[in-house]
Design a protein around this nucleic acid. Structure first.
Lengths: 146, 146
DNA sequence: TTCCTTTCGTTAGCTGAGCTAATGATTTAG
DNA sequence: CTAAATCATTAGCTCAGCTAACGAAAGGAA
């Protein structure tokens, strides 16, 4: 029989919400070296792995409005991490792709940024890691469905 | 034998990072009604549940610098959700406590804010919920240790 | 063709979170 | 009683996020 004190969906949602806030606040300062904060790093990694894509597609993938993405891309471009390529088929759009430097910097920054987090994860037992791994998959589905 | 394709701590850390970003971005717009966004709601709930506490304690609890918390508290105070009470024992500090309105608004806003998330959680199977519940506990420990 | 409409990205202008540095007020140590 | 430490605030910055408005390009209808 299950413990009646077990938190229900409401309490779990609050915990997830709170955990997300605190996790990001902790990781925020983790990579001051490269000047890549969470939004920029996230956008860059989508560009690196998602191949050339338009600004609108990138904004949609990152779930932000186009103007927001415009400025993130401008910052990445100013650092020479991303380049815009004209699209001859539709000249309203631009194709965003990562430069060599962009790919390298992304990998390094990402590594730096999640290093401490990975370290903590690595200290969990095998069984605990299995639990977290399973939960990540479930949470991604949850987020998707929001 | 474990599946060699299973993501290691590094990949799990990246997934957690990404999930936190996307979760908060989705929840951000969830409670435009009350004007309580994530940082304010989080701070208010600490005040409500954490009883009277000083600004510095609140900033520490929220893992933020005092100036940041000063402005969050000012906003909450302007809305009549929080009141400052002089501390006769140390007049440098202030004691923050929630007003009646603050308590009510917090409960309502929090409910609204996590409603869709709780709904998604509620749609998981019993076993899946158990997994997520266990993972939340582990993740809180991970965040603590960062 | 020439308009009209839609779509894409950008610009302008706003709110708000986060930081550091500096200040004023108070407490505590010497 | 003076000096140092502590607490909150103010000032001033970067950056994320939004809406509204706009120009450029594409596409459809007359």
């Amino acid at each position: 029989m299950s413990n009646p004190r077990q938190p229900g969906p409401e309490a779990m949602a609050e915990s997830l919400h709170s955990a997300a806030i605190h996790l990001l606040r902790k990781l925020r300062r983790a990579d001051s070296a490269s000047g890549l904060n969470a939004p920029r790093l996230s956008a860059l990694s989508v560009i690196v792995f998602g191949g050339p894509l338009t600004l609108g597609q990138l904004a949609a993938a990152e779930q932000v409005r186009p103007p927001t993405m415009t400025r993130i891309v401008q910052a990445l471009e100013a650092k020479g991490l991303v380049k815009k390529v004209a699209n001859p088929e539709d000249r309203r759009t631009i194709h965003l792709s990562a430069t060599m430097k962009g790919k390298r910097v992304m990998v390094e920054a990402r590594e730096r940024r999640v290093r401490s987090l990975a370290k903590q994860v690595g200290q969990l037992s095998r069984e605990e890691q299995r639990t977290v791994r399973a939960a990540i998959g479930l949470m991604e589905g949850i987020i998707e469905g929001l």
